[in-house]
Structure formats: structure tokens, C-alpha cells
């Protein structure tokens, strides 16, 4: 039987069953390059969990890190479609490599004189920093893997999070096969 491949947009989007992939895209640092990539995901109906973009070691390139979900065929198409964009220099699916990743979160959490020290203890455990303080709030900065940042936010939830901003994942292939 011929194996059909259904379009990403019409597949069941049961997030739990679809594997997460971290894809690193090196692109020419040109006007509109970001739009082309974001537009591609929208037009083809691919999921985006997070998308970050920033400069690299070279002036004329940017690196985008996309966290997306899909089965093998969708991920294969995503990588092919990304490669098809003229401004794309290199696409790597880091999921199959050993890689380092970081996510950064700024969390403004409600605090009272009674809860402040407890919040700061949690921050210390997660090696988060206090970057702003007011009589009613504390603003904390945490970096780490996505799971660590997720856990940190979970711990702060009971204190009432007033505002939050996250960068999404940035990632690079690991060269040294060990812990640093």
C-alpha cells in the first residue's frame, strides 16, 4: 500500500505524542529573513513552541532556534522547506545531536514582607537573580534549560505571577561530550 503523507495542518495535533525538535537555522542576515521563516511555519501549518533569533559571531548571519513538534515526516518536510528558502545557509536538527540549550525568563511575582524571603530562597535554589524590587513585587531573572525554567515558574505560581517574559530556547551543538 502506498504510504500517504497528510499535510501538517490537518494532522491530529496531540502535542503529547509528537516529538519535540530543536532546529537551529543559520540564515543570511537580510531584510525579511525572519519573516520568511515565521511565514513558512504559518503557511504550512507547522507548530512553533518557541522561536528565537539573534546575531551570531559573523555580522552577516543570524541564528534562529525553533522548537517545533511533529512526526518524522513533518520534521523532514520542515527541514527541507527551511533549506529551500534562499537565505538559509544551514539547518541542523539538534534533537539528534548532543546540544546545550538555554532559556531565560523574567518573572515579576507578587510579594509581601512575609513571603519575600521564601521567594528569595526559591530563587537561590534555581540560581535566579533579583533584578528589581518594590514594596509589592519582586522581579527575578532565571536562565537554564527549558525544564528548569518551567520548574522555577511552577514554584513561583502560588505567590501570584503578575507578569512574565521568556526568550524561548536558544541552542548550540555540543562539542565537548561531557559536563561543564
Amino acid at each position: 500500500m502506498t504510504q500517504p503523507i497528510t499535510a501538517a495542518a490537518t494532522r491530529p495535533s496531540n502535542g503529547e505524542q509528537l516529538k519535540k525538535h530543536t532546529i537551529s537555522i543559520l540564515v543570511e542576515n537580510k531584510f525579511g529573513a525572519f519573516n520568511r521563516i515565521a511565514g513558512l511555519f504559518a503557511a504550512k501549518g507547522y507548530n512553533i513552541d518557541s522561536l528565537t533569533v539573534g546575531p551570531t559571531e559573523e555580522d552577516d548571519t543570524s541564528r534562529m532556534t525553533v522548537v517545533t513538534r511533529g512526526d518524522d515526516q513533518i520534521i523532514e518536510q520542515i527541514i527541507k522547506q527551511l533549506n529551500k528558502l534562499i537565505d538559509t545557509i544551514k539547518v541542523v536538527d539538534l534533537t539528534f545531536e548532543s546540544f546545550v540549550e538555554r532559556d531565560l525568563a523574567l518573572v515579576k511575582v507578587q510579594s509581601t514582607p512575609e513571603t519575600r524571603s521564601e521567594i528569595m530562597q526559591i530563587a537561590e535554589i534555581f540560581r535566579a537573580k533579583v533584578i528589581d524590587i518594590s514594596p509589592k513585587t519582586l522581579t527575578l531573572e532565571a536562565t537554564g534549560s527549558q525544564q528548569k525554567v518551567d520548574a522555577f515558574i511552577k514554584m513561583l505560581k502560588p505567590f501570584v505571577i503578575k507578569e512574565m517574559a521568556r526568550t524561548g530556547r536558544v541552542a548550540l551543538k555540543r562539542e565537548f561530550q561531557g559536563e561543564v
Binding site: T2, P4, I5, Q73, K84
Partner: peptide
């Protein structure tokens, strides 16, 4: 209906566009 298309056949696909391959049919 893709499942029934050339269902008995082995398939070779020659195309200049890598994204055309395995897009609709494996």
C-alpha cells in the same frame, strides 16, 4: 486517494526539488 495510488508498485522518484520528495507519497 493516495493510499490506493500505484499501491502495488515500488517507486522511484527523480526530482530537482528535495522538498517534492516524500511530500505526498513515500
Amino acid at each position: 486517494k493516495v493510499e490506493a495510488f500505484a499501491a502495488e508498485a515500488k517507486k522511484v522518484h527523480i526530482d530537482i526539488d528535495p522538498s517534492a520528495i516524500s511530500k505526498n507519497v513515500k
